[in-house]
């Protein structure tokens, strides 16, 4: 048995989030266009096709998409743009519809684009808890859950 710990209410060290970085051999404006106008060309799993795609790319603007699975099942997803800086930054909420048509758990996606050695570096960040809806009063504090997760997955 471990010694009694009294520090568990301390501030967490990390968030549970998805962080990915990619370098694309293309100008920033083109990568930005791909994110805002041409998402249906690339953003879906293999074998899926977009059947619906619309987005009002400005803060507060909604986006809505539908992709059809190889089995012909339609999956709807959508969200709201929170921050938009042309060729530089996109922040939007993201959630898959549940079978009953209501939005599922909302996540927050941040896409930052920067020049990098004549190419474009994309910093992609998806936060699974700290969306605008749940932000107030619940900011941070996911680190310990993540640590639990690691411990139990390692066990």
């Amino acid at each position: 048995m471990n010694a009694r710990r009294n520090d568990y209410a301390a501030e967490p060290s990390a968030d549970l989030e998805l962080v990915m970085t990619r370098v694309f051999d293309a100008p920033r404006a083109l990568v930005y266009r791909a994110w805002t106008k041409d998402m249906s060309r690339w953003s879906c799993p293999r074998g899926f096709v977009f059947t619906h795609n619309e987005g009002d790319v400005r803060p507060g603007g909604k986006w809505r998409s539908c992709m059809r699975s190889p089995e012909g099942k339609d999956l709807w997803l959508g969200g709201v743009y929170r921050e938009v800086v042309e060729n530089t930054l996109l922040v939007f909420t993201h959630s898959w519809d549940q079978p009953d048509g209501t939005p599922g758990h909302e996540t927050l996606v941040t896409v930052k684009l920067e020049d990098y050695q004549g190419k474009t570096r994309m910093l992609f960040h998806q936060n699974f808890f700290d969306t605008v809806a749940s932000r107030d009063g619940h900011r941070g504090g996911w680190g310990e859950c993540f640590e639990l997760l690691q411990e139990y997955l390692a066990a």
């Binding site: 990915m20 051999d25 879906c44 799993p45």
Partner: peptide
Amino acid sequence: YWDESFDRLDIYLN
């Protein structure tokens, strides 16, 4: 999901 999508994005940009 994103990993696959970004692979496709790479190809699309090219």
